[in-house]
């Protein structure tokens, strides 16, 4: 075998020899196994990944019959992101009719629950119009974004200013206050959008602000589940483990800081979510094969431990996708096939 053409996690092209490719796959799975205290991929799985990466085709795909549900987070933002000036409803139609979406997501350009609060009526009426003209299931999506509740952008003292000063008690109190504000906003916005007809609510990039972010989301999910037993609730993550910004917050007696996906999903299920979306960070200093072996190891353990559908986050910089604005199809298609077939995903 000649050298394999692949990429680094930042998208740069590299070539790996057979032994280098094997080594990267082995080291990637070992890294995940050590961090998550989960089993590494077995020989057969590593061999399957080896084949995916050594095949010279520019594009690869899953085997017939292995297709999974394809969802799109923040869909209404991404057409405008490339400078195509469509209305949000047109953007949704593009994803529905042109890009093979199995679900849609309606969202506000700020993509956080807090700023939607004062303009909720506008959001509701546009969502209602979108629901009349689209056929496939529609989420309303936003980020918990607990950082937006801290001064100067929010009402709470900023823990990120208090902590470096050693004011740990004050920082923790501020974080607990942030959780209360965020839960209220998430429940209010999600309720309004569900009352307007959305099929589901997607809490996207949960945990971005650490354990407070994750805890607030779990509490909001719990309230919404009691309020709307039929509502589809998806919890998508920001990163592979919950950063401990507070460090002592618990949900159902479990400390949330430091949890990896196979443990996160247990709490997400307990709170009452319908779908869980793990996000495994891409390391830009390592190769795509290293990153995929690692992401598949974490995600497989999570799928095996989950009773609800798992839709892995596979956008820029997560799930083995390089951290680059325009990810190349050789890298994306390999990540897609590998994650679906090795981790046994229910969707992306």
């Amino acid at each position: 075998m000649g050298k394999t053409y692949t990429r680094m996690g930042d998208g740069s092209v590299i070539e790996l020899s057979e032994s280098e490719l094997k080594r990267d796959l082995e080291e990637g799975t070992r890294d995940a196994a050590e961090r998550g205290r989960i089993p590494p991929l077995c020989e057969d799985e590593l061999s399957y990944l080896f084949d995916i990466y050594s095949i010279p085709y520019r594009f690869v795909s899953v085997d017939r019959g292995n297709e999974v549900v394809l969802t799109y987070d923040a869909a209404t933002l991404k057409i405008r992101r490339v400078g195509v000036l469509t209305h949000r409803i047109q953007s949704l139609q593009i994803y529905e009719k042109l890009l093979g979406a199995d679900t849609l997501e309606f969202d506000h350009v700020d993509y956080s629950f807090k700023p939607v609060k004062p303009i909720i009526a506008y959001e509701q009426t546009e969502l209602e119009q979108a629901l009349l003209v689209t056929t496939i299931p529609m989420f309303y999506g936003a980020m918990p974004n607990l950082g937006s509740y801290t001064q100067p952008d929010g009402p709470c003292l900023n823990p990120m200013e208090l902590l470096p000063m050693g004011k740990i008690t004050e920082a923790r109190a501020a974080q607990e206050e942030m959780v209360e504000h965020a839960v209220k906003d998430m429940v209010n916005v999600a309720s309004a959008m569900y009352e307007s007809g959305a099929d589901g609510i997607n809490f996207d990039t949960t945990g971005a602000a650490g354990d407070t972010d994750f805890l607030a989301t779990l509490r909001a999910v719990e309230i919404l589940r009691k309020k709307y037993p039929q509502m589809c609730i998806e919890v998508g993550m920001a990163g592979e483990f919950i950063l401990g910004m507070h460090g002592e917050l618990t949900y159902d007696g479990v400390r949330v800081a430091g949890l990896y996906p196979h443990k996160q999903v247990e709490l997400v299920e307990k709170a009452g979510a319908t779908i869980y979306g793990p996000a495994i960070n891409t390391n830009t200093d390592e190769s795509c094969p290293w990153n995929i072996a690692r992401a598949a190891t974490f995600t497989k353990a999570c799928v095996e431990n989950s009773h609800i559908p798992v839709h892995a986050d596979m956008g820029m910089g997560v799930g083995g996708i390089p951290v680059v604005d325009q990810p190349p199809v050789d890298a994306v298609s390999r990540a897609s096939k590998a994650m679906v077939e090795i981790a046994r995903l229910d969707g992306l």
């Binding site: 594009f59 690869v60 795909s61 899953v62 292995n66 297709e67 999974v68 549900v69 394809l70 969802t71 799109y72 987070d73 923040a74 869909a75 991404k78 057409i79 992101r81 490339v82 593009i94 994803y95 529905e96 890009l99 093979g100 979406a101 199995d102 496939i136 996207d204 998508g236 996000a279 839709h311 892995a312 986050d313 596979m314 956008g315 820029m316 997560v318 996708i321 604005d325 325009q326 990810p327 190349p328 199809v329 994306v332 298609s333 897609s336 096939k337 679906v340 992306l348």
Partner: peptide
């Protein structure tokens, strides 16, 4: 899935592993 560049990610995932909507 988190989507960014529609051609690079949405289109690629759709063709590689999506059911087809």
């Amino acid at each position: 899935m988190g989507v960014g560049d529609p051609a690079g990610m949405a289109s690629a995932h759709n063709t590689a592993s999506g059911m087809g909507g």
